[in-house]
């Protein structure tokens, strides 16, 4: 390890120690730091080019050093978190049910973890995974699907009757969590499937591009059943464009978007609505833009309102 890399790592480590970043997930922290570098470039550049840090280096060189150190540092926590999710949080027993044959859960876990880690080398995949990962860390699926199962309304109907998942609630939760985990698979194939500005900004891809991604993903995850892979790919396709998207994909898309900027300890001012309720209300008005299922948003909104989320 070069002296410059050591310095960059030490600098990044100190930044990440900031108490303000403590409640955030590793990828959220990374985004914050990257934005911090961009926002404060004019102030940071002269200071970091001094002999105490990176003498003689240009700002671009400094940023490259810092970002490399940041990714490496964040990966330690991120991969540990992924392993925790894959090994302890998601019960892959449902894979056997979908495939109608016994596949070792540990093998499925290994395949998925390996692919996700590979994908997370790409900066755009990391950005695209932030919301999904945050949703997994804060167990959004658990609390909302529990409420969905109690209500047995539109979302429950879509899961059990339309998508025909004849699985237990816990198995459905595990499938949605797998969908979230595999959401960055759209970055497996070189980008180019996005259409207009709306799609670019909302991170959704075209159905045809999704099909290409599905075929590519299938090669890497041969133990994962097709419905799960399709759900993972469809989580990045607009429901407005394709009305046949799996319910699990639509749910994952909503949760991933919800958690893009989720902060667990946000202070709700007096007179303001709760964070989830506010987000879902805004999402209801922007559902076409993001390609969400409006009826799902309505039901999640009711759940959030009832529970004060």
């Amino acid at each position: 390890m070069s002296a410059e890399h050591q310095k960059a790592t030490a600098f990044v480590a100190r930044l990440l120690e900031n108490p303000a970043l403590k409640p955030l997930t590793p990828l959220q922290k990374e985004e914050q730091i990257i934005q911090f570098f961009h926002a404060n470039a004019t102030q940071l550049a002269p200071t970091l080019a001094t002999p105490a840090f990176f003498p003689g280096a240009s700002w671009n060189q400094i940023v490259a050093l810092l970002l490399a150190a940041l990714t490496e540092y964040v990966n330690t926590d991120l991969f540990a978190s992924l392993e925790q999710i894959v090994e302890n949080q998601i019960d892959f027993g449902y894979v056997n049910f979908l495939r109608q044959q016994a596949v070792g859960s540990d093998k499925v876990q290994q395949q998925i973890a390996s692919l996700v880690k590979t994908l997370l080398v790409k900066p755009e995949a990391r950005r695209g995974f932030t919301g999904a990962h945050t949703a997994l860390v804060f167990k959004f699926v658990d609390r909302y699907v529990d409420a969905v199962w109690t209500r047995k309304s539109y979302i429950h109907f879509e899961i059990t009757k339309v998508q025909r998942l004849r699985m237990s609630k816990e198995q459905v939760k595990a499938m949605i969590e797998t969908t979230l985990l595999l959401k960055p698979v759209v970055y497996l194939v070189a980008t180019g499937g996005v259409a207009g500005q709306a799609e670019q900004t909302s991170g959704i891809v075209e159905t045809k591009f999704g099909e290409k991604v599905f075929l590519a993903t299938k090669k890497h995850l041969n133990l994962v059943p097709d419905p799960v892979l399709k759900s993972a790919v469809s989580a990045s396709i607009s429901f407005i464009e394709n009305r046949f998207i799996e319910a699990t994909a639509r749910i994952a898309a909503i949760f991933a978007a919800r958690c893009r900027n989720f902060q667990p300890s946000v202070r709700v001012d007096r007179g303001a609505d709760s964070p989830d309720k506010s987000w879902l209300s805004i999402a209801r008005r922007n559902y076409k833009f993001y390609g969400f299922d409006i009826k799902m948003l309505d039901e999640f909104f009711s759940i959030a309102a009832e529970n004060g989320w």
């Binding site: 303000a20 955030l24 914050q32 911090f36 102030q43 670019q200 900004t201 909302s202 922007n286």
Partner: peptide, 16 residues
């Protein structure tokens, strides 16, 4: 929300 989706996310927690 639609406008900010196109922008870079804001630095929420870290100040210079």
């Amino acid at each position: 929300d639609r406008t900010s989706a196109a922008d870079e996310p804001e630095v929420l927690d870290l100040k210079f």
